[in-house]
Design a protein around this nucleic acid. Structure first.
Lengths: 157, 157
DNA sequence: TGCGTTTATATCGCGCGCAATACAAATTGT
DNA sequence: ACAATTTGTATTGCGCGCGATATAAACGCA
């Protein structure tokens, strides 16, 4: 009713910026909670978590990569990936072996079961597209805007 | 070079949909990793995590709410919030008391220290805006598109 | 009144996600 | 050749985030 207009019509008052609905970051955060929720129900039958599924995506694209290359592609730390990879190995989807050329490196490769899984999950991206709604154009646009924000964030941090 | 064009020029082949760079979900996931990274460095001095900060945002907007109302606003489960709230209480920022009217409810309220913290962090949203770049219009547009995706995801799951 | 159901919160177990730290292999500089 | 540095991975500790489960309070209804 009597809310005073800010001096600059495009700016927000400090109090408004502290509101949840205003914040892009919270929209991102809460949307990802929804993404995880959907992936959980989709990947449940394969006994996979979403981060594990992401590692499989990396390997299906390029087999036999070392740990730090997976780190780089997924924006994750070794600390996160080492135990995750061990679980994938225990599950029988991947193998981990020290490189012969460079003993420091651990080469991650797909097992036959890991390779075979690809066919079973190939419908998953479509399931998510359906769950999120929107046209292909909208999805591509949103994705590329996020990538831009992501690169800004990682160079800022 | 010799990649066969799909029957529908706007559609993607199943193999391409399984690539990381193609996926909107991974863009979301990895962008949030960047968001968390920036928030960690910003909130470090206040000894706050990002989810804890979100709870404070809820309380600064409306003091004296029960746990499930915080759950609803943050899209989180009680399971996540109960221990988080205990940590905030141990840190001296909030109080937790059983409601007198309904003994099942736990009413969460700000301490003086919790209320005072608001002034100290009010620059944080601007810091993130700067870290993410982009105009206010772009941010608002991206935020609202994410909200739309979020509502779809939660009704799908 | 009494009994089944719903609601609100809590406990437990597990898998991320990262900072701090450790350590061995590889590389570099002298 | 050897010491210092860098690189690649692993270990530990802690805070989410949620499914499965538990429990007490409130409610509904015969």
């Amino acid at each position: 009713m009597k809310s005073p207009p800010p001096s600059n019509a495009r700016a927000l008052r400090s109090a408004d910026k502290l509101k949840l609905e205003t914040q892009l970051c919270f929209a991102l955060y809460s949307t990802l909670l929804g993404v995880n929720k959907v992936y959980r129900s989709l990947l449940r039958e394969f006994d996979l978590t979403y981060p594990q599924y992401l590692v499989m995506l990396v390997l299906w694209d390029k087999d036999r990569v070392n740990v730090s290359e997976i780190c780089d592609q997924l924006f994750l730390e070794t600390t996160t990936l080492t135990p995750l990879l061990k679980r994938l190995e225990a599950r029988g989807l991947i193998r981990r072996r020290r490189s012969a050329e460079d003993e420091r490196q651990v080469i991650v490769s797909l097992t036959d079961e890991g390779r075979a899984l690809r066919q079973q999950v190939k419908h998953v991206p479509d399931c998510l597209g359906a769950a999120m709604g929107g046209s292909l154009e909208e999805i591509v646009e949103l994705r590329d805007k996020l990538k831009k924000v992501r690169s800004k964030l990682f160079e800022a941090a």
